[in-house]
Structure formats: C-alpha cells, structure tokens
C-alpha cells in the first residue's frame, strides 16, 4: 500500500517534469498548462500513456534528407511481406503536437491521432507510410516528422512541411473515404483566447449586462440559443411555488433567469 503510494507520487511528479518541459515550449498547451505546486499535485494528474505521448510529440528527430520513391503497389506488397500488422504498433495513439508546427502558429490544440484504430480500419500501412528513408538501417515505417519538418526547405521545394503533410493526409483520406472529419474542430480543440482582454464589464455587472457583453461578439450564438430547446422549452410545473397551475411555464415565458 505504502509502496504503491510512493510509486504513484513518484510517477506523477515525473510526469510533471515532462509536462513542464513540453509546456514551456507551448505555454498555452491545453495539457497541464498550470504551473504545478507541491500541494495540488493531485489536481494535475496525468495518465501514464498521455505523458508518454506528450513526450514523444515534443521530440524532433533528425531530418531524413533522401527517401526511396517506391510505387504504392510495390510498397503494399513489401509491407505485407514483412507481415507488419496492427499488432506491431507500439503506440496506440499519438499526440500531434510538434514544436515544428507550433512555432509558426498555435491556434488549435493538438490532435489525438488513434494510430491503431486507423491502422485496423484502413488495413494498409502504405496508405500513410508511403516512402521509406534511403538509409538501409532506418525503420521501414518511420514517423511523419522524420521527412516532413519545416515547410519550404530550399533544397526540397517539393516536399511539404509537417503541418501540411498531416492535413493533406488526414483531410485527403477523409474526403476520399467520405468518412472522418474534414473541418478544423472535427479534430482540434480550438484554443480559446484569453477573454480577459476582450470582456469589457464594469464592477458588479448585472445579469443583462453580462449577456449583452457576450452577445457583442457572439451574436450568432445568441441567435442559435433563441431557437434551441434550452430557450423554447415549455411545460407544466406543479412543484414551483406560485406557478403550480401554469402549463406554459418555461424559460422564455415565466422563468426568471431568462436574460
């Protein structure tokens, strides 16, 4: 029992060191953005696999300059002959959160790419692992960021950067298969900018004022709300004092918090 506890604490604090090192590069990262304090460790607990994925995402591997341009069919056969399958996958998912991308712009949270799941449903490794490094000793199926790194390298004008490689591959395939999201927020969480700068409210604002302030920018959200059931619901309310007999009790009619 005691042992286990110590183990957990050790693990947790270890993962914090990791998270810290990652988040210092991307301070707004959605994962453990807060600076840990000794006493609220438990609030910032991070799963082991998650920590591992974050660590992996933060790595920048040496750039592969030359690749072998094999045709898709040949490559399919080659990979099949090597008997590569879902079972050989040692990372069931990846966090696509490379510093190569984030240093250009960082509006969205990282994508959690379900590697095993995609492999199982596509059943063809060559769909993504299209080329291999020219180096004989390199892995047959290497990670995307080995070949795709910075965009517009002057020696490789034809090779797309990592961000475009991801997007072209994912969105292209999703479109082709007519399956899977192709819009931004289908895969990413949009990083919500700090509203402290946007919201302009006096001290102790009234409820109506607050709503108005929200609507100043989110007018559409307001419109949507007004046509949703959260606004339109109606019904009898036998247990609400003084409204027992009302059958059209609802937010837009008799409820008090309808600002």
């Amino acid at each position: 029992m005691k042992n286990k506890n110590i183990k957990t604490i050790l693990l947790v604090s270890f993962s914090f060191v990791l998270v810290l090192s990652i988040t210092s590069a991307t301070p707004q990262s959605a994962y453990g953005a807060k600076t840990p304090k000794a006493d609220d460790v438990s609030d910032n607990w991070i799963a082991e696999d998650q920590a591992k994925a974050s660590k992996r995402a933060a790595e920048v591997v040496p750039f592969v300059d030359k690749v072998v341009d094999e045709c898709r069919l040949f490559r399919q056969q080659k990979l099949r002959k090597m008997k590569l399958s879902v079972n050989d996958i040692d990372n069931s998912y990846f966090l696509l959160d490379s510093p190569i991308i984030n240093k250009e712009d960082d509006q969205y949270g990282p994508v959690r790419f379900m590697h095993s799941k995609h492999a199982a449903s596509v059943g063809d490794c060559s769909a993504c692992h299209h080329y291999r490094p020219a180096d004989e000793n390199a892995l047959e199926t290497t990670r995307c960021s080995a070949c795709h790194q910075e965009s517009f390298m002057s020696d490789h004008p034809e090779r797309v950067g990592l961000k475009a490689a991801y997007h072209l591959q994912c969105m292209g395939c999703h479109q082709e298969m007519a399956e899977g999201p192709v819009d931004c927020i289908g895969c990413h969480v949009k990083k919500v900018p700090d509203h402290a700068d946007f919201v302009k409210l006096g001290v102790n604002p009234g409820a109506i004022e607050v709503t108005k302030e929200c609507l100043r920018c989110h007018a559409n959200a307001g419109e949507d709300m007004l046509s949703s059931v959260h606004w339109l619901w109606e019904g009898p309310s036998p247990y609400t004092l003084c409204k027992e007999k009302k059958i059209n009790h609802g937010k837009r009619s008799t409820a008090i918090n309808n600002y």
């Binding site: 250009e104 712009d105 965009s151 517009f152 002057s154 004008p157 797309v160 950067g161 961000k163 475009a164 997007h167 072209l168 969105m171 931004c184």
Partner: peptide
C-alpha cells in the same frame, strides 16, 4: 503562407 494548413501556397524563390 505560414498559416495555411495544407500548404496551398508555397513560398520560395
């Protein structure tokens, strides 16, 4: 160019 998610725009000489 930098923001384009799919590198529809290639920047260079």
């Amino acid at each position: 160019v930098a923001v384009c998610p799919v590198e529809a725009i290639t920047f260079g000489k």
